[in-house]
Amino acid sequence: MRWDAMFFVNSPAAILMIGSLFISLPLHAEETLTSTSNDYWELKISPYTYHYQYSPEHKDVVLIGIEHHRSDQWFIGGALFSNSFGQPTGTAYMGYTWDRLFGQSALYAKLGVGLMYGYVGKYKDKVPLNYNGLSPILVPAAGWKITSRDAIDVSLLGIAGLLFSYNRKF
């Protein structure tokens, strides 16, 4: 499989990501159409994933994603990445952010839920509830705001590992 735009245009990943983003939009059109100054977009880049168990089959996981955060702390997002076995993978999700954890203005937690497409072939059993490459995801994360625009976080990937990312608000 090649890691190019044609994979996503001609695959269930494109349909999944586009459909999930539209389905997860708020049901109230007036809320969607009116943006407040507290709404923002965030670019997510992950150059490293730590696996709890070593496997010679593991490849580097590189992720790029985008999230739209609303003033009510809900967000929607999507990401493209090469999974732990080098397969192109896509995900679409929605979630909630808890700011100011333990009274610390820089500390936050997030929980995202959605769908992922990409673990296929001999790696189809590496993620739970996988059906033809499509599987549900539940991803908790904790992070630290370095500046008003920059943050780092770590996401828990079930029993497989941890995903470390840099996030840039714009």
Rank of each mutant, 00 (worst) to 15 (best):
R2M: 10
D4M: 11
A5W: 12
M6H: 09
V9Q: 05
S11V: 05
P12L: 04
P12I: 01
A13E: 06
A14S: 11
I15H: 08
L16S: 11
M17S: 13
I18F: 08
G19V: 05
G19F: 13
S20K: 02
L21T: 07
L21S: 03
F22G: 02
S24W: 11
L25T: 15
P26Q: 11
P26M: 01
P26C: 01
P26R: 15
L27R: 10
L27C: 03
L27W: 05
H28W: 00
E30T: 07
E31N: 00
E31K: 13
T32P: 00
T32A: 11
T32Y: 10
T32W: 08
T32L: 08
L33E: 04
T36C: 05
S37W: 04
S37N: 03
Y40W: 07
E42I: 05
I45G: 09
S46C: 12
T49M: 14
T49P: 06
Y50T: 02
H51A: 05
H51I: 09
Y52I: 00
P56Q: 05
H58I: 05
V61P: 03
V61A: 10
V62I: 13
V62K: 11
L63S: 03
H68M: 03
H69E: 03
Q73I: 02
Q73C: 10
I76V: 07
G77K: 06
G77L: 15
G78K: 09
L80I: 11
F81C: 09
S82I: 12
N83D: 02
S84E: 00
G86F: 06
G86W: 04
Q87C: 09
T91L: 15
A92P: 02
A92S: 14
M94N: 10
Y96M: 03
Y96K: 15
R100F: 09
F102W: 15
G103E: 04
Q104I: 14
Q104R: 09
L107G: 09
L107Q: 09
L107V: 03
A109Y: 04
L111A: 12
L111W: 07
V113R: 00
V113K: 00
L115D: 02
L115P: 05
M116V: 11
M116R: 14
Y119W: 02
G121W: 10
Y123K: 08
K124L: 13
K124Y: 08
D125F: 11
V127W: 04
L129W: 02
L129P: 08
Y131N: 08
N132C: 06
G133K: 14
L134I: 11
L134P: 01
L134Y: 00
S135R: 06
S135P: 00
I137L: 02
I137D: 01
L138F: 10
L138G: 09
A141I: 04
A141T: 04
A141D: 01
A142Y: 01
G143S: 11
G143C: 12
K145F: 13
T147L: 13
S148T: 15
S148W: 05
S148M: 00
D150G: 12
D150M: 12
A151S: 13
I152Y: 06
L157V: 10
L157R: 09
G158F: 04
G158C: 11
F164G: 04
S165H: 05
Y166T: 03
K169R: 15
